[in-house]
Every structure is written in structure tokens, then in C-alpha cells.
């Protein structure tokens, strides 16, 4: 991330939110994996534990939304929006095509919905590369 971006208060606030949410996500994923057995019934404990990492994902989405709202530098905001559009396009394209393959070919392995958000995050990184190659600036590491 460029130094001038790091000085932006909205980006600093984003990273202050991102780090604890990431710690909460990793801790809750670890806890759920440790406690819930593979063949666990869908009872209140299982669902409650499994929802915790989901809440952290909601936290990430909230933090990214706040970044867009709070970024008062229109150029930096445009870079972020472009990254998110690229990520959304890639995610929709891959999951839609894979979904149709799953529909018509039972031999195609099922893609767990869990992977949609990580896929979108990979799309953000590709969006950053897209920005870098088309405009010359990547944007934040959000």
C-alpha cells in the first residue's frame, strides 16, 4: 500500500477493524472445527458455533462497506469500487458456470457455498492487479 494511502484516516480505520475481525474469524473457525464432529447433527450448539465465523464474514463486509462510505478521496474510492466490481464479476461468472455444470453433470464435484466469499476476496486481489495494469494504481490491500 502506498504511503499516501496509509495516511488516509478511512483506510487506517479500515485496517483497525479488519485485524480484530480476522482474528475473530480464525478463532471461531478453529473453535468450530475443533468442537463440531464431521457427522454432527444440526442442533442449536452446532448451528451456534457454525454461525460465529459467519458473523465475522458479515464484519468484513461491513468494514468494506464503511471504507467506501468513509473514503473522502474520490480517486481512491474509485479504485476500491473497481476492485469490488472485478471481484463480483469473477465470482458471479465462476459460480454461475460451475453451478450449471453441477446441474447437468453429476460427476462434477460440488462447490461448497462456503467458498463464495474467499473466491470474492481472490477477485479483489485480481481487481487490484487490474487497476495496476489499467490505471497504474492498485488501491488498498482491502
Amino acid at each position: 500500500m502506498a504511503l499516501s494511502q496509509a495516511r488516509n484516516p478511512a483506510i487506517r480505520r479500515y485496517f483497525k477493524r479488519f485485524v480484530p475481525i480476522t482474528v475473530a474469524y480464525l478463532a471461531s473457525i478453529g473453535l468450530a472445527t475443533w468442537i463440531i464432529p464431521d457427522d454432527a447433527p444440526a442442533n442449536a450448539v452446532t448451528i451456534g458455533l457454525a454461525i460465529l465465523p459467519g458473523l465475522a464474514v458479515l464484519g468484513w463486509i461491513w468494514a468494506m462497506g464503511r471504507l467506501l462510505v468513509e473514503l473522502d478521496d474520490e480517486y481512491l474510492r474509485m479504485l476500491e469500487v473497481r476492485k469490488m466490481l472485478v471481484a463480483t464479476g469473477i465470482t458471479l461468472a465462476l459460480t454461475s458456470v460451475w453451478g450449471i455444470l453441477e446441474l447437468y453433470s453429476p460427476e462434477v464435484p460440488r462447490l461448497p457455498v462456503f467458498f463464495v466469499f474467499p473466491l470474492w476476496c481472490i477477485g479483489l486481489a485480481l481487481g487490484q492487479l487490474f487497476n495496476r495494469f489499467t490505471i497504474g494504481d492498485g488501491g488498498t490491500c482491502a
Binding site: 494511502q5 478521496d73 474520490e74 480517486y75 481512491l76 490505471i135 497504474g136
Partner: peptide, 17 residues
């Protein structure tokens, strides 16, 4: 009240304000 990158992008014609 913007980033140096913004000024650079506008100056070099990569971004219209």
C-alpha cells in the same frame, strides 16, 4: 484534501476529477 496519488492521476490524465 486528497491523496498525492489523486493529484498524480489527474495530472497524468489517468483520472478526470
Amino acid at each position: 484534501g486528497v491523496s498525492r496519488q489523486s493529484v498524480n492521476a489527474i495530472e497524468t490524465g489517468r483520472y478526470d476529477p
